[in-house]
Amino acid sequence: MQVQSPPATQSNRLQLINQLSTPDGIPSECSRRAKTQIDLLLLAIEALDLGGAEAMLASAKELDLEEVIRGRVNLWLLRSSNPLRRFSQRQPMSQDEGKALVLITCFLARRLTVLIRQLLLGYQQLEDQGLSLDHHFRLSDYLARFRSHFRARMNAKRSAVIAYSSDEKLNELAIELLTKLLFCTGTNGADRLWMSLFDGEVS
């Protein structure tokens, strides 16, 4: 008898996802805040790495997550579940999909570790000397790209987006996301990020 898809294969494929723990009491779908956080972190990765969007698809393949992230459109739909998006899709994000995106985020962040550390050190030095962020070429490049990505894709009519109407506010957000990405590069980065998405969601 020919067995086309041995059951063992599937469990192997989703091995990484299953490594992320599922704490008691968390909702079966990712919250609005979780969807927003994941999308913004991926946006920051795109601002760091010009080929970030392609790298996300490539890393989904590399991490054997294709079963959950089924191609470009599926990835776009998942990211568009961010309620701040201009063309926000009101669709749920399952736990597995959330975990897959968290894994991709951490995977890409780890590849960008050196750059992230450089930028944060540069930011720290500029702050110490009281200089504007334009003095660090690579950092101001990242900030400008993040701002343009954010403004192009987020719905400027939403109050949560209006809060980031100024360049300064958007720069703060970009630095905050950069810091979060740094913590994603760690040994337990994926676990920590995944858990942080449910802060305040459990009773």
Binding site: M195, G200, E201, S203
Partner: peptide, 13 residues
């Protein structure tokens, strides 16, 4: 151990 767990709702409020 690290004992990672999501923050309960009462702390967030």
């Amino acid at each position: 151990q690290s004992e990672l767990s999501p923050l309960p709702r009462r702390f967030v409020r």
